[in-house]
Amino acid sequence: MTTYIVRRLLLFIPTILIVTIIIFLLMWIVPGDTAMLILTGNDPNEGGRVSLEDVERLRAKLGLDRPVHIQYADWLWDMLRGDLGESLWYQTPVIDELGGRFVTTVQLAVMGMGLAFIIAVPLGIISAVKQDTKLDYISRIVALLGIAMPTFLIAIVVTYVLAYVFDWLPPLDYANLWEQPLTNLQQMVFPALAIAFHDLAFTARVTRSSMLETMRDDYVRTARAKGLTEMGVIGRHALKNALLPIITVSGYQFGRLLGGVVIVEVIFLVPGIGNMLIDAIIHRDFVVIQAVVVLVAAVVMFLNLVIDLIYGVLDPRIRYQ
């Protein structure tokens, strides 16, 4: 067990390194650089009289004219010393913002996943128990509604309905959960719903197939044979065992959400890392991009490890090598 954990943790290192190299290479070949954007204000219509000489001068000042491997080595060295660097665009330390934004995104993801879970698991159970009946079809269609629409469409429609039908929108000015919980919930519930709506299909599908599988297992058959009621069979035996893969898969899904709620954050004005990331990409601010990606990657990998461990504890059939 310990060896397994140590081995997994050690494997983090090459993976994170590969992540940073991929990002660095991408940012290196992506056209456009921060210096240019700083001088033009990142507005397609404001770049008029920027002199090309000034651009070169600023590139040198920001260190963007150095060879890419030197830039990478410098960045890595700073990173190892715990210095995430300063945003190229804002010229403020990345670390100042990252923490708070990360917490916000985690809150959003937790709320989204939670809502999805609450709705999707019953839907999945219904469709498994009533496989190939009308109820199955209805619950499956319901679960699929969200995945069949791009998130931005859901978000825009929600905004339109709130603004043009109810003449109301969640208050501006993001409030922290622990400072003004009520305002925070008003602001977060709609983006969370949009995420939940989108994730319904996934969780419901996993629940359904997981339930179908367990219900065919021997012990469930035994339980049935013993004369337990159908509800008893489902609740006591099937669901208990089916939940394991559901939780596992949701865990992985959670990791995916951390880096993937950008559009929802942008439209619903949630100051999370998704918003930060898209801003950084627009500005070609690779210092910020690197910091966010490394953080997300590390958290996701750690999460996966924890899930695997929990899985192993709960399912004695798994053996760690």
Partner: peptide, 19 residues
């Protein structure tokens, strides 16, 4: 106070509801 709203539709909606 200036609120920074990237999405134009959202900005218009914000003005619409009087925020």
């Amino acid at each position: 106070k200036v609120f920074l709203i990237q999405d134009v539709a959202r900005a218009i909606a914000t003005l619409k509801v009087g925020q």
